[in-house]
Nucleic acid binder design. Structure first.
Lengths: 239, 239
DNA sequence: CGACACCTTGAAGAGGTTCAAGAAATGTGG
DNA sequence: CCACATTTCTTGAACCTCTTCAAGGTGTCG
């Protein structure tokens, strides 16, 4: 895959506004040629990188769906996020030259490989890229703040409602339905992310369905009453 | 406060190895002159910045102790971290030009103000600084991964043990005792951070004391059996 | 010294987990 | 293409951890 084809691909990529800084000049775009050195296809279930792997690059998801998770020596396991097209993974590796989490494809996927050394070089030359990189990292920090809030202060129903609304909102931003979604992950993975057991996730789905908030059939979910879900997340001002 | 005095202060600062990149040349140090434009004293209980404040700078803590917390419109509240000397706060503000959390001094404190625009400029010129900034942000992301693991998969005793060990380890890295510490935060703030109620925190402290793991007298804690605490955190390989 | 914030402890209750069994979907190999 | 194995999901019942509510104790600061 030669650099030229990559450049053309970035230029024409429908995801550009998701993963590239806005307002780049043509000169900037020329310089950013070579930021993405390769594409990589990842089969479902396969790690893009794993805990302990040498850190060399950040990855932008072109297609597919990933989960990231951390694991302790004692076998504890925590899903830290689910990532979809246009989102970046690998930021955890910068600090220690090695990745500290696993990134596993939940469906066949393709990513753009951006060697970190190039990111460093280019962001010295292109302030818009520099700013963009900083914002990506800051965004990830703020996202995790939200998850901390969820894990630290919400009950099962609130967590799952917030999770569904977040997922569907991100999918909608990518042109998918605002009301229908297909879960790419198992109940257990949802549970790990939300700090719940898979049985609790399943039961809560059933309860939402009983209450007429959603329709669930395995991994297919239809949001029937988004307002109702939002009510569940926001209402309890009790602390 | 003139730039020269700041430069001298950074140069001589005992915290330099905590908050500055290692291996700077004299030329680099000259360039980094002007990174810190001011110092700011913050009284206990006062916010350094608050949710919604315009983002202008990052702050390195010189002395004192902070907590950061996020709040929702519905009044939900979550402590996202406790920060001590040499640590940086404000990274949450980069993505949206406004801070999304509160940073409140838990004791009288002093911070070094580093305007973000200067950080951007200087890190284009000084690769060591650029790398350092990236690492700081990555470190924060990894730190939060750890908190997600804690909140998502640990029980009360495990959380509190992990919390104490983390605190004492960071204090030790700053030259304080490995076994004795004074908590700067209330039981309620610890509880918020750990996703527990203050009563549970209090009870768990008492239990640790009964079990001979620690001695507690209000905010004074003495680690009697660090190995035992580590055992609590690591043992349960059940998931 | 008195007011206020903070901490401790008990008892009852709720929410989530655990264990268990069965159903539904998915994938595999013949 | 079907049968079988495997994974995933659902649901029930008992249990346990943490929360809630309540009261009293301790420490701190003006």
């Amino acid at each position: 895959m030669n650099p030229h084809s990559i450049k053309a691909a970035c230029f024409n990529c429908t995801l550009r506004e998701l993963c590239m800084p806005a307002g780049l000049t043509d000169g900037d775009l020329d310089k950013l040629d070579g930021l993405v050195t390769a594409r990589r296809k990842i089969k479902r279930g396969v790690p893009l990188f794993a805990n302990g792997d040498q850190f060399t690059a950040l990855y932008t998801i072109r297609t597919g769906f990933f989960k990231t998770s951390v694991t302790t020596e004692s076998g504890r396991d925590q899903v830290t996020g689910f990532q979809m097209a246009g989102e970046i993974i690998g930021l955890d590796g910068i600090v220690g030259d090695h990745h500290t989490c696993d990134a596993i494809a939940l469906e066949d996927a393709e990513v753009c490989v951006m060697p970190y050394s190039r990111i460093e070089e280019l962001s010295r030359e292109v302030p818009a890229l520099q700013n963009h990189v900083h914002k990506m990292m800051s965004r990830e920090i703020v996202r995790e703040h939200g998850v901390l809030l969820l894990l630290g202060s919400m009950r099962a129903e609130e967590r799952l409602a917030a999770f569904l609304l977040n997922l569907v909102q991100r999918l909608h931003a990518r042109g998918f339905s605002q009301t229908e979604l297909v879960l790419r992950m198992t109940r257990e993975e949802i549970g790990s992310y939300l700090g719940l057991k898979l049985e609790t996730v399943s039961r809560t789905f059933s309860k939402f369905a009983d209450d007429g908030l959603i329709e669930v059939k395995q991994r297919h979910v239809r949001i029937v009453d988004a307002r109702g879900l939002r009510g569940i997340v926001n209402k309890p001002a009790c602390n």
